[in-house]
């Protein structure tokens, strides 16, 4: 059974024909070629497929494409400014919170969503936002460092804010 859906993905309106059991993740990756979101488990246990849908961080492997009809979607490709990177991305680089990189887009998107929702998020808020995200390489020390860095810079007065 085919369904026609409409999505806004990274600011661009998209009309797609999908099947009833198509996941949003498959459609983003294979139809729209936005491969930044990864499939690590397919059942919402690892977080590697995290994207932002209507302002919320969600696991794209758990959402059916038909459920996303009409949604506003942001993927990691859509948050990265053309000539730079975001504060979250910069913090990951500086803390060396990246090793194999497969889980990284999911972690970045979860923090990105939290900071967009709550610009004054504390380190604890940011850690909570990463609940259920798995990383097998780093041992989380550097990722915890990222949450500290972002919490600090989020609460810093605007004029002294570190530029990415």
């Amino acid at each position: 059974m085919k369904h026609d859906i409409q999505l806004t993905v990274n600011g661009i309106p998209r009309n797609l024909t999908v099947t009833a059991d198509d996941t949003l993740l498959r459609v983003l990756r294979e139809e729209l070629h936005l491969t930044g979101a990864k499939k690590g488990c397919g059942e919402g246990e690892c977080g590697a497929c995290t994207i932002i849908m209507n302002g919320e961080a969600i696991r794209a492997c758990l959402v059916l494409a038909v459920e996303a009809n009409g949604a506003d979607i942001l993927t990691i490709e859509g948050i990265t400014p053309p000539n730079g990177i975001t504060r979250v991305q910069q913090a990951f680089i500086e803390a060396d919170a990246v090793q194999c990189g497969f889980c990284t887009p999911g972690f970045v998107m979860a923090l990105e969503a939290e900071l967009r929702r709550n610009p004054r998020a504390t380190a604890a808020d940011l850690r909570n936002a990463l609940g259920g995200h798995l990383c097998r390489c780093t041992g989380y020390e550097a990722i915890l460092q990222v949450t500290e860095t972002l919490a600090t810079s989020a609460t810093r007065p605007k004029n002294t804010k570190k530029r990415a």
Partner: peptide, 22 residues
């Protein structure tokens, strides 16, 4: 030195096997 492939990875541009399509 900062990791050579970090920027690619934090922006989701790194291609892994399942990202390849022909």
């Amino acid at each position: 030195i900062l990791r050579a492939d970090a920027r690619e990875k934090v922006t989701g541009q790194t291609l892994y096997i399942d990202d390849l399509q022909f």
